[in-house]
C-alpha cells in the first residue's frame, strides 16, 4: 500500500505527519520524495548505509559524423541543443532525457551518455529511503522514478511529497492508493489545499485531511472539507510543545504516548480508506 502525504502549501507539517505515520505503522517504509530538500532524516535519524546514483541519459555529439543539419535542435522541446554552422552545443541541464534528438539524427552522430543528477540513500532495512537532487540541478523527476524502485511489495510506503502541486508532486502521487492532505487553518493553507484537493481528485486518488496547527476556529478548512466531502482524519493543535520538540528533532509520536496512540489509530484506518471505506 502506498500513502502519499502532500499539502500544497509548504510548512504545514507534511514531514511531521509522514514520519510519524511511518514510525507507528508496522512494516512501513518512509520515502522522502522532497528531493530538493529531504528532511525526514532529521527526525527518523537513519544510518544511510546504502546508496545509488541517479543518472539520466543526455546526448553526446560525434562532430566527425555530424552534418549540422539542425534536426536535433528542431525536435528538442526544451531547447537543450543548438546547431551552429560548425558545431553542435548541448545544454545537458535543460535536457529532459526523451531521446528524440538521437532518434531524428540521420547521420547517427548522437549517442546517449549517463549524467549524474542525484542520489538515493537508504538504511539497511529499507525503512528510511530518500532521494537527493544534486545542487544546481533543475529537474528532480528522474530521482522520483528511481525512488519508487526502492518501495518493497507488501510493505506500507509513506511518501513524503514535495510542496506545491507541480510535476514532482504529480509524479510522487502516481500509483498511490490514498493521499493525506496536510493543511492549516489559514487563508494560505486553504488556498493551496484547494489546489492539492483538485489534483488528487483529478488523479482519482481517495484523500483525507490532517489539520495541523488547529486553533479555536478551524471553520475555514472545515467548511471546505464538508463541501468537498473530504474527511478530517486528525487534528493536531497549534502547540508550543509540539513546535519545541520538533525543533529539537523529536516528533509528536516520540514525545507523547497520546500522539503515538492517535497516529496509530490513523495508521490503522488507512488500509480501509485506501479501499474506499468512509472515514
Amino acid at each position: 500500500m502506498r500513502i502519499a502525504v502532500l499539502s500544497g502549501k509548504g510548512g504545514t507539517g507534511k514531514t511531521t505527519v509522514a514520519a510519524s505515520l511511518a514510525l507507528v505503522t508496522t512494516n512501513s517504509q518512509y520515502i522522502d520524495c522532497d528531493v530538493e530538500e529531504p528532511n525526514g532524516f532529521l527526525y527518523l535519524k537513519p544510518e544511510f548505509s546504502r546508496s545509488s546514483e541517479v543518472k539520466v541519459r543526455v546526448p553526446l555529439i560525434d562532430e566527425s559524423i555530424c552534418t549540422h543539419c539542425g534536426a536535433c535542435a528542431r525536435i528538442c522541446q526544451f531547447n537543450a541543443l543548438a546547431v551552429t554552422p560548425n558545431r553542435v552545443l548541448t545544454f545537458p541541464e535543460l535536457c529532459h532525457h526523451c531521446g528524440a534528438c538521437s532518434l531524428v539524427c540521420e547521420a547517427g552522430a548522437i549517442t546517449e551518455v549517463d549524467r549524474r543528477i542525484g542520489v538515493i540513500e537508504a538504511d539497511a532495512v529499507g525503512f528510511a529511503v530518500q532521494g537527493r537532487l544534486d545542487v544546481g540541478e533543475p529537474v528532480g523527476i528522474p530521482i522520483l522514478d528511481d525512488l519508487k524502485i526502492w518501495i518493497e511489495p507488501g510493505r506500507t510506503a509513506i511518501l513524503d511529497c514535495p510542496p506545491g502541486a507541480s510535476c514532482a508532486v504529480v509524479h510522487s502521487l502516481e500509483d498511490c492508493d490514498f493521499a493525506i492532505l496536510v493543511t492549516e487553518p489559514t487563508p494560505f493553507g486553504l488556498h493551496d489545499l484547494k489546489i492539492a484537493a483538485e489534483l488528487v481528485k483529478t488523479m482519482g486518488i481517495p484523500a483525507g485531511i490532517v489539520l495541523n496547527k488547529a486553533g479555536k476556529d478551524n471553520s475555514i478548512i472545515e467548511t471546505f472539507c464538508t463541501e468537498q466531502n473530504l474527511p478530517i482524519l486528525l487534528k493536531i493543535p497549534y502547540s508550543r510543545q509540539i513546535a519545541t520538540d520538533y525543533s529539537n528533532g523529536i516528533l509528536p509520536v516520540q514525545a507523547s504516548s497520546e500522539w503515538a496512540y492517535l497516529f496509530g489509530e490513523l495508521a490503522a484506518k488507512l488500509p480501509g480508506l485506501a479501499q474506499g471505506v468512509k472515514a
Binding site: 531547447n79 546547431v83 554552422p85
Partner: peptide, 19 residues
C-alpha cells in the same frame, strides 16, 4: 517563437539568429 518557452529561450533565440 521562444518568447514563452519555459526554459532555454536564449538558446532557441540564438538558434533563430543563426538560422
Amino acid at each position: 517563437a521562444s518568447r514563452n518557452a519555459s526554459g532555454g529561450a536564449g538558446i532557441a533565440a540564438a538558434q533563430a539568429v543563426i538560422d
